[in-house]
Amino acid sequence: MKSLLKNARENKGLKTRELAQLAGIDQALISKFESGTRKPTKDQIIKLSQLLEIDYETLMVAWLKEKILYEIGDDEFALKALLLAEQEIQKNKKEIDSAILSANQIILDEIEKLKNKLQSFNHFELRQISKTLELEFIFKSIYSNGNSLSLEETKSVINDGITISGKSMQEHLEAINFQEIAAYIKDLSLKKTSLNEKDFLLIHNLIFKGIEFENAGKYKKESLILREMNLLFSWYETHKNNLNPIILASEIYLKILDINPFEKGNSLVANIIMNWILFQNNYVYAVAQKDKNSSSEYFSSLDEYKIKNDKSVFINYILKTEKENLIHAIQLNNK
């Protein structure tokens, strides 16, 4: 952990004195954190993570590891104790997951009723609704990423191949790329394809198709990324049949943001993968929006997750979004 803190501070060009002033922590303590002679508190870890732009999970894992090693050292029973602790943590996690499911059972039941009502429509009605929802998915996805195309302009670009005056070539390409992505995840869903590395990387590559980015479809060159991604795919396989699909999709979104596997485009990929899982289970798109016109609910739910390690607020946000979008989809049939 000490090297994480020191390297991050030096990379930002800060002196220990300057970091101490920004963090409100004594300069001598900063030096001791970097030399390993003192350990930060959890509150100090949160501050340093934000100021030095160190991934919060990475720093917390390093901090907890050192706390554990300090407490147990090389005691002969240390490994047995760690195994028992891991089992206890897993047990507690299952209880938390069960509590989340129980707390949201009412809205989950409401969502299921809405989904069944939508699925009761005839093929022609569903096709018309699907076309509208797909256009909205493309528009919301690119708009939340800073694209200035309006909904109607997006429709003109992807359906009619029209070039919109005053809009950049990149903005046009983003709309076209997301049309291809929407078709791709629809195809994966119909084939019941499981989440895998090949399609995960291809989706990232499609986001930047025709747009200059040499690392499209490639993980960051960090030693832990590949391991973390393999753990993600394994986690998905383990839980895809025993977690509610909306909760599964929400957790996948958070896990992708935690791993942060790409140089850029991580939140876009997280959104696409989440909606792939939803679509595969006959739900409608639930784009997690972070644009200037949306409420602060998205950001506050992520903050709650990062600071308190409480995923329930974000899951609630996605459940609410999914319910609203199902109601919207049903209403489209009456227009």
Rank of each mutant, 00 (worst) to 15 (best):
3 S>E: 09
4 L>F: 12
9 R>N: 04
10 E>D: 07
12 K>E: 08
13 G>K: 12
16 T>S: 12
26 D>G: 13
29 L>W: 04
29 L>N: 14
31 S>Y: 02
39 K>G: 02
42 K>A: 11
45 I>P: 00
45 I>E: 04
45 I>A: 05
47 K>Y: 07
48 L>K: 04
52 L>K: 01
52 L>V: 02
53 E>S: 15
55 D>V: 01
55 D>G: 14
58 T>E: 15
60 M>T: 07
62 A>P: 08
64 L>Y: 14
66 E>N: 10
70 Y>D: 15
70 Y>A: 13
71 E>C: 03
72 I>G: 10
73 G>A: 05
76 E>T: 13
76 E>L: 05
76 E>R: 06
78 A>T: 11
84 L>A: 15
99 A>M: 10
101 L>W: 05
103 A>S: 10
107 I>E: 02
109 D>G: 15
109 D>C: 11
109 D>W: 07
117 K>A: 09
119 Q>N: 03
121 F>H: 14
122 N>E: 14
122 N>P: 02
124 F>C: 00
129 I>Q: 12
131 K>P: 01
134 E>S: 12
135 L>A: 05
136 E>R: 14
136 E>I: 14
139 F>S: 11
141 S>N: 07
141 S>C: 14
144 S>F: 11
146 G>S: 14
146 G>E: 13
151 L>W: 05
151 L>Q: 08
156 S>C: 03
159 N>H: 09
159 N>M: 06
161 G>P: 09
163 T>G: 01
167 K>D: 03
169 M>E: 05
171 E>Q: 13
172 H>N: 09
172 H>Q: 09
173 L>D: 02
174 E>F: 06
176 I>R: 13
181 I>S: 03
185 I>N: 00
186 K>R: 08
189 S>E: 05
190 L>Y: 01
191 K>W: 01
194 S>R: 13
199 D>C: 06
201 L>S: 09
203 I>K: 00
205 N>F: 04
209 K>P: 06
213 F>I: 01
215 N>Y: 08
216 A>S: 13
218 K>P: 03
221 K>M: 07
226 L>W: 03
230 N>L: 02
231 L>N: 15
233 F>T: 11
233 F>D: 10
240 K>I: 12
241 N>P: 00
245 P>A: 03
249 A>M: 06
250 S>C: 03
252 I>R: 03
252 I>M: 01
254 L>M: 13
255 K>V: 06
257 L>F: 04
257 L>I: 11
257 L>W: 02
258 D>A: 10
261 P>N: 04
262 F>E: 09
264 K>F: 09
269 V>I: 05
279 F>D: 07
283 Y>K: 03
285 Y>H: 08
286 A>E: 08
288 A>F: 08
288 A>D: 04
295 S>I: 10
296 S>K: 05
300 S>M: 08
300 S>P: 01
301 S>R: 04
302 L>W: 02
302 L>Q: 08
306 K>H: 07
310 D>C: 06
313 V>P: 00
314 F>C: 08
314 F>D: 04
318 I>Y: 15
326 L>Y: 11
328 H>C: 04
329 A>G: 11
330 I>R: 03
335 K>I: 13
